[in-house]
Simulated scan of single mutants.
Amino acid sequence: MDSIMKSHFEHLEAKDKSLQLEAFQHIINATKEKVDWAYEVWDQLIGWLTDPDNHRRARAAQFLAGLAISDPDKRMLRDFPALWEVTKDSKFVTARHSLQSIWKVGLAGPKQKEMVLTHIIDRFKNGINEKHHTLIRYDMIVGLKKLYDEDKDEYIREIAMELIELEKDSKYRKKYLSAWK
């Protein structure tokens, strides 16, 4: 990892919130492409998934989701359950930020995509009693759309449409469909 990227990771812990945000954005932007430093931070990020600081948990989840494309050893297949757990975080904002990034794991390969889809389908169908379940469902549908836009796999569109059809409330069904316009 070059010194600039190292400094971004250090700046995540800075007292200055604007410095933290800038560092966060640089790391997020870097993970949009394959990087050669994923394993230099992987274990630290896995540890952060259960950190007492909810900001660390959210950042770790978002970074790991992005780093999934830079994971030739397929560690994500082993570590995904810990990442998915953060999408159910007690701090709703942390859970949401994590859930909004989870689709990126599906870009890493067929097994990773199937794993993400399986978890999303299960949660959409069985998460009706979760607090803010309509927002969670919306985030998952938006994630499927983003994955579809990158992957162009019609199977993803079919899954999204089937899930949207499960929504009983027409207001929410319409909202979910709007993500696919």
Results as ranks from 00 to 15, higher is better:
His133Gly: 00
Phe124Ile: 12
Leu99His: 05
Val105His: 02
His133Phe: 15
Ile120Phe: 15
Ser90Thr: 15
Gly127Cys: 11
His119Val: 03
His119Trp: 07
Val105Lys: 04
Lys111Glu: 15
Thr118Ile: 07
Leu107Asp: 06
Ser90Phe: 10
Phe124Val: 12
Asp122Tyr: 14
Lys113Leu: 11
Glu130Asp: 13
Ile128Thr: 12
Phe124Pro: 02
Ser90Ala: 14
Thr118His: 09
Phe92His: 06
Lys113Asp: 01
Val105Gln: 09
Glu130Phe: 15
Ser98Gly: 06
His97Trp: 13
Arg96Thr: 04
Ser98Trp: 13
Asn126Ala: 03
Ala95Glu: 06
Lys131Ile: 15
Glu130Cys: 03
Ser90Cys: 03
Gly127Ile: 13
Lys111Met: 11
Asn129Lys: 14
Asn129Ile: 03
Asn129Trp: 12
His133Trp: 14
Ala108Phe: 08
Glu130Pro: 00
Lys125Asn: 07
Thr94Cys: 12
Glu114Trp: 04
Lys113Arg: 15
Pro110Asp: 14
Gly106Ile: 08
Ile102Glu: 00
Gly106Leu: 08
Ala108Met: 05
Asn129His: 08
Gln100Pro: 00
Ser90Gly: 02
Gly109Gln: 04
Lys131Gly: 03
Lys111Cys: 01
Lys125Val: 10
Gly127Thr: 12
His133Tyr: 14
His132Tyr: 15
Ser90Met: 09
Ile128His: 10
Arg96Val: 02
Trp103Thr: 05
His119Asp: 04
Ala108Val: 09
Ala95Arg: 12
His132Lys: 13
Glu114Cys: 03
Lys125Met: 12
Leu107Ala: 10
Pro110Lys: 13
Val116Pro: 01
Thr94Arg: 05
Phe92Pro: 01
Thr94Gly: 00
Glu114Ile: 02
Ser101Phe: 11
Phe92Met: 08
Ser101Ala: 15
Gly109Asn: 10
Glu130Arg: 13
Trp103Arg: 01
His133Val: 15
Val116His: 03
His133Gln: 08
Leu117Lys: 01
Gln112Cys: 10
Ser90Trp: 06
Arg96Leu: 15
Ala95Trp: 09
Gln100Arg: 06
Val93Cys: 01
Leu117Glu: 08
Glu130Gly: 00
Leu117Ser: 02
Thr94Glu: 05
Lys88Asn: 08
Gly127His: 02
Asp89Gly: 01
Ser101Pro: 01
Val116Ile: 15
Phe92Cys: 01
Lys91Met: 07
Ser101Gln: 05
Arg123Ala: 04
Asp122Met: 07
Lys91Ser: 05
Ile121Pro: 01
Ala95Gln: 05
Gln100Phe: 06
His119Thr: 04
Pro110Asn: 11
Pro110Phe: 09
Ser101His: 10
Gln100Val: 13
Thr118Tyr: 11
Ser101Arg: 08
Thr94His: 01
Arg123Ser: 08
Val116Asn: 02
Lys111Gln: 14
Asn126Cys: 07
Gly109Thr: 04
Lys91Gln: 10
Arg96Gly: 07
Ile121Gly: 00
Leu107Thr: 11
Leu107Arg: 14
Arg96Glu: 14
Ile102Thr: 08
Met115Lys: 10
Asn126Val: 06
Gly106Glu: 02
Ile102Arg: 00
Lys104Arg: 15
Thr118Asn: 13
Asn129Leu: 12
His119Leu: 04
Leu117Gln: 08
Val93Pro: 01
Gln112Phe: 06
Lys104Tyr: 04
Leu99Ser: 04
Thr87Gln: 03
Ser90Leu: 13
